[in-house]
């Protein structure tokens, strides 16, 4: 990689790192793991940087890497969330007073792909088509995953008004 390319990568990484870190946290729910995810994401981006630059703005690409790294953690047992650390589902009946804790624990109960779908759709404001592209699935799957995730969240949070999904 040329010095100019490396300089461009550094500038991009420094500028986007905070946003990537927040997205990573919303995916995994742990700041330390979020830092690991971002580190892995940026290293992968570096490897592909020359090619990525020629393909237009790299933002969508790096978000896709981040999500794939998160989904890829399944195959790394030492990274995988242990079921014993999940909050007991029965405890959902006694909602904590703190809504933030409630949402955080509710998110951990969603399957990874549903969590990733919510993040891409409602945090990164991606369209259904863009989300489908990032996750490598059909638009219909994105819609169904979104609907299931929102239904689960509404049930867990006891908030029937939570972001009614668009009908499209």
């Amino acid at each position: 990689m040329s010095l100019a390319d490396e300089g461009a990568f550094r500038a991009f990484a420094i500028a986007r790192r905070p946003a990537l870190r927040r997205s990573a946290y919303l995916l995994c729910g742990d700041w330390h793991r979020a830092d690991d995810l971002v580190q892995t994401t940026l290293v992968k981006l570096y490897v592909a940087w020359t090619r990525v630059q020629g393909g237009g703005p790299p933002d969508a690409y790096v978000q896709r890497i981040l999500v794939r790294c998160f989904l890829d953690e399944r195959r790394r047992p030492w990274r995988r969330e242990s079921p014993v650390e999940f909050v007991d589902l029965d405890a959902a009946a006694e909602r904590p007073a703190d809504d933030m804790l409630d949402l955080r624990s509710a998110l951990t109960r969603l399957p990874r792909r549903q969590r990733a779908t919510l993040l891409l759709r409602f945090w990164l404001d991606m369209s259904v088509a863009q989300t489908a592209d990032a996750l490598g699935c059909s638009e219909g799957t994105v819609k169904s995953q979104t609907a299931r995730a929102l239904t689960t969240l509404r049930d867990l949070l006891g908030d029937p008004a939570l972001l009614m999904e668009e009908s499209s």
């Binding site: 919303l26 809504d99 933030m100 939570l162 972001l163």
Partner: peptide, 17 residues
């Protein structure tokens, strides 16, 4: 209607360095 994005943002209030 509750905005999910706002709730996401609140989860990030205590972001460590």
């Amino acid at each position: 209607m509750t905005d999910l994005r706002d709730q996401f943002a609140r989860l990030l209030d205590n972001e460590p360095e």
